[in-house]
């Protein structure tokens, strides 16, 4: 039904790092520069977020959790959009590049989303006295997280690369269509009861160093995400290659065995 060597057929036109010799490492000049930029913005974000920016008038120092919360949720949504685009492009182009891009983004997105939910719950414990309230954003995040855990579960099932990529692409597309609907349903359900959320009221009041810390941490979040994405992509690419090599070697060994026994 599906040729099992489809991955190696398409590999040549989607090689992420120029030459074969460069494949021994997942870093390149570009990604090192990006990594350095990410480190600098993270450091600036920490200094401004934790030290220089003033505590919030009402929320005190707990407001500082937002400098982690917003960047991670931003990067997670970016990741899920990339997963959707990669999934759609895979179904058109059927190249390994789009499959790896979609799955790498989904994996990092799930981690960032989990971090968002955990720091949101910690913030809730400090501010509301409870870890969890059925606050619209937390509720939406929980649903989306479970949806993308399903994507990773499909992804983890053993199959030949083309079949696995098609399956994941379908799940990636089905999931992204649901995001606005989940938002709407949860907003109507919970939004009626408590008006604007507390996290929502922080942003407009921000100014000066608080605002700078916010922008810096958002930039840091995106840079870290892109850096992770590049490396996850390259690791995924190399994993596929080692599987190809391992199979070729096994076949070769088997052939030699046959020759040894005289056929």
């Amino acid at each position: 039904m599906t040729p099992s060597n489809s991955a190696s057929d398409t590999a040549t036109d989607s090689a992420p790092t120029g030459s074969r010799s460069a494949l021994t490492s997942t870093s390149s000049t570009g990604s090192r520069a990006l990594g350095a930029a990410a480190l600098i913005t993270v450091a600036l974000g920490i200094v401004y977020g934790l030290i220089i920016s003033p505590p919030d008038a009402k929320l005190g120092s707990t407001v500082r959790i937002i400098y982690l919360h917003v960047p991670t949720v931003l990067a997670a949504y970016l990741a899920f959009i990339i997963t959707a685009v990669g999934s759609a492009m895979y179904l058109f182009k059927k190249t390994e590049f789009w499959d790896l891009l979609a799955s790498s983004a989904a994996e990092i997105g799930v981690i960032f989303f989990a971090v968002t939910i955990i720091d949101g719950a910690l913030w809730g414990k400090v501010t509301w006295g409870v870890f969890w309230r059925w606050e619209p954003r937390l509720t939406t995040s929980a649903v989306l997280l479970l949806m993308y855990i399903g994507y990773l579960a499909i992804r983890a099932l053993p199959a030949d690369p083309h079949t696995r990529a098609t399956r994941s692409a379908i799940v990636g597309l089905v999931a992204v269509v649901n995001i606005p609907i989940v938002h709407k349903a949860v907003d109507w359900w919970r939004g009626i009861h408590q008006g604007q959320t507390v996290l929502g009221t922080v942003d407009p009041n921000m100014a000066g160093n608080q605002l700078f810390a916010m922008y810096m941490s958002m930039l840091a979040g995106i840079l870290v995400f892109v850096w992770l994405l590049i490396h996850r992509f390259r690791v995924g690419y190399l994993t596929e290659r080692t599987e190809d090599v391992a199979l070729a070697e096994a076949i070769e060994a088997r052939r030699l065995e046959n020759v040894g026994h005289g056929g």
């Binding site: 649903v143 989306l144 479970l146 949806m147 855990i149 399903g150 579960a153 499909i154 099932l157 799940v171 089905v174 999931a175 649901n178 609907i181 989940v182 709407k184 349903a185 949860v186 109507w188 359900w189």
Partner: peptide, 20 residues
Amino acid sequence: TILPLLILPLLAPVLISATR
């Protein structure tokens, strides 16, 4: 095992809307 994991989160907004 995979079908409920995939379908139930997807139907979360349906359950919310149908119930409300």
